Simulated scan of single mutants.
Amino acid sequence: MQTSQTPAFGAPAKLFHWLTVLLLAAQYAIGWLMPDVHRDTQPVGLIGLHLSLGATIVLLVLVRLAWRFSHKPPAESSILPASMRLAARVTHALLYVLLIALPLMGWANASARGWAVSLFHVVPLPALAATGSAFGHTLGDVHKLTAWVLLVLIGLHVAAALFHQFVIRDDTLGRMLPGVRKIR
């Protein structure tokens, strides 16, 4: 049950959050299952889907940020020390940065390979790097490393939510999940 000290996030914020989670879960699964990308690889099948989902994630996160900046989030837990509140803000900021930067790096790499990037073969998107661009190819390598960094940050985010729920017991998890009650 929500308390007056811990108001829940609104439905749009929850929707943006959980859509992002679903897209990332699909994106990581596809990233691990799709064939390795080599010089002659074409962006078909899982690779094409990976590109489309990445572009969708960028769009969703940009809309999510616009919503976030135009709607004040519920107040943070006041029982946390300032250092923990700062760590939460930094982690959230890094998540947003990586959720935009990671797909853009993959998109630039695809552009450097001469691949057309689109939203599910319906909306063509502009190239972010010239075909053959060394920088675009390098971003492909950075993209792989950054995917692991994002996964670690997601793990920290989940661990923090569980820490709030089961150790601090401040109902932070309940603010984002319907039906989760504060543990006393």
Results as ranks from 00 to 15, higher is better:
residue 3 T to Y: 03
residue 32 W to N: 14
residue 118 S to D: 07
residue 46 L to R: 11
residue 153 L to K: 06
residue 67 W to M: 11
residue 84 M to Q: 11
residue 100 I to V: 15
residue 75 A to Q: 11
residue 86 L to C: 08
residue 63 V to Y: 07
residue 142 V to I: 15
residue 131 T to L: 02
residue 42 Q to L: 15
residue 114 G to D: 12
residue 77 S to Q: 01
residue 116 A to E: 14
residue 85 R to T: 12
residue 103 P to K: 02
residue 31 G to T: 07
residue 146 T to R: 02
residue 45 G to F: 13
residue 59 L to K: 07
residue 75 A to E: 09
residue 50 H to D: 08
residue 150 L to G: 03
residue 12 P to V: 09
residue 159 A to R: 06
residue 14 K to F: 03
residue 14 K to M: 12
residue 48 G to P: 00
residue 112 A to S: 15
residue 133 S to K: 05
residue 116 A to I: 08
residue 30 I to Y: 12
residue 5 Q to E: 06
residue 123 V to G: 11
residue 4 S to Q: 08
residue 111 S to K: 02
residue 13 A to K: 01
residue 99 L to D: 02
residue 83 S to H: 06
residue 51 L to K: 05
residue 183 I to E: 07
residue 170 D to T: 13
residue 105 M to N: 01
residue 88 A to I: 07
residue 153 L to Y: 06
residue 143 H to K: 09
residue 100 I to A: 12
residue 95 L to W: 02
residue 130 A to T: 08
residue 59 L to R: 07
residue 60 L to V: 14
residue 100 I to R: 02
residue 159 A to M: 10
residue 45 G to K: 13
residue 139 L to D: 02
residue 74 P to G: 09
residue 82 A to E: 06
residue 52 S to E: 08
residue 2 Q to N: 08
residue 145 L to P: 01
residue 161 A to Y: 00
residue 160 A to Q: 05
residue 7 P to R: 04
residue 13 A to P: 04
